[in-house]
Structure formats: structure tokens, C-alpha cells
């Protein structure tokens, strides 16, 4: 291979190498370019539509009265609100408070009761202190939530529901 040709080959190689290096740079440049384009087009937010609760029946309201019964255990047990007004299908959180005034550790289980008598099946709970045993140290005070909704299936004439909890001590139920 004569020298002139070798020279020409080297020139071609250099040009091609420049393209290759430039494209490597372009690969990295795509990072800020991508951000810029998404931002200027306003498409940085993922377009999640319809994550809203579609089952709320806004055409009517139900009053849920919150009751706490000390019948089972003579300590302080009360609902923080007297009542909530809600639409069927709407998820709400209410709170109950226990103060263990008995002077000893207590493990107890809460039992729900609803009135009218067929209302219980329309109360749909997602979280509740009544799902498991609760243990309290002597003198302990604790606020505990109930997350629930009234089913949209509830009959239209059921405009008031009483929701009541009663704690019963669990014998030998330490922890």
C-alpha cells in the first residue's frame, strides 16, 4: 500500500472516529434533551387519570352516630366525635380513645354493634382496632382509628346508623 493511500485511509478513519465519539456524546446529551423536551411540552407528570373513587353516591347522606360502651370494662372509653355525616361509598376515618384507669395491664377485644339491626352488613371497615386484641399498660391512653364506609348498597331509608363498640377483657391474654 503506497503512502498516499495510507494517508487517505487514516484521514477517513479519523473522520469516522469523530462521528463515533460525537454519537457517544449524543447518547449522553439525550438525558438533558429528554428532560427539556418533556418539560417544555408539559408532559413530565405521568398522566394517571381516574384514580378518584367513582362509587360515591353524592345524592344522599347518612348520619353515623358513634357510641362507646363501658359495659364490658369499667375504664374510660369514648368516641372523639359524636357523629359523622357522609355519603354512601365515601371513605371516612373516625377516632376512639381508651384511657386505662384500672391500674393494671389489660388486654381486651372490642366488639362492634350497629343499629338498626341490619345496618351492620353495610358498614365496610378497612382498618379498625376491633380487628385484633389490644393491650394497654396501666394508665396508658391511646387514640385508635376506624376507617370505614357505608356501602352504596345501603337502603335509601337507612338515614341514621348507630355504631357502637364494647371492650371485653381477654382472660390470660397478655400481649
Amino acid at each position: 500500500m503506497d503512502a498516499a493511500l495510507a494517508d487517505r485511509n487514516r484521514q477517513t478513519m479519523t473522520k469516522l472516529l469523530v462521528i463515533a465519539v460525537a454519537m457517544l456524546g449524543f447518547g449522553f446529551a439525550m438525558v438533558p434533551m429528554y428532560r427539556q423536551i418533556c418539560e417544555s411540552l408539559g408532559i413530565t407528570q405521568t398522566r394517571v387519570v381516574g384514580a378518584a373513587n367513582t362509587q360515591v353516591d353524592a345524592s344522599r347522606s347518612v348520619t353515623v352516630e358513634l357510641l362507646a360502651s363501658s359495659g364490658g370494662l369499667p375504664w374510660r372509653f369514648e368516641a372523639l366525635e359524636r357523629e359523622v355525616r357522609l355519603h354512601p361509598g365515601q371513605l371516612v376515618t373516625v377516632n376512639y380513645r381508651v384511657v386505662n384507669t384500672l391500674g393494671r395491664p389489660v388486654t381486651a377485644h372490642a366488639v362492634m354493634n350497629a343499629a338498626p339491626s341490619n345496618a351492620g352488613r353495610y358498614i365496610e371497615k378497612q382498618a379498625c382496632f376491633c380487628f385484633s386484641n389490644q393491650s394497654f399498660a396501666a394508665g396508658e391512653e391511646r387514640v385508635m382509628p376506624v376507617v370505614f364506609r357505608v356501602s352504596p348498597e345501603a337502603p335509601r331509608d337507612m338515614s341514621t346508623i348507630s355504631l357502637s363498640y364494647t371492650f371485653f377483657e381477654q382472660p390470660g391474654g397478655a400481649s
Binding site: M23, L24, F26
Partner: peptide, 14 residues
């Protein structure tokens, strides 16, 4: 190849 192999190399480097 010269145009896109460097881009792949960049991507896997990241």
C-alpha cells in the same frame, strides 16, 4: 453502526 453503537455504549454506561 458507527452512529448507534456509541449510543448503546452510552446507555449501558449509565
Amino acid at each position: 453502526l458507527i452512529a448507534v453503537m456509541p449510543v448503546l455504549a452510552g446507555a449501558v454506561t449509565m
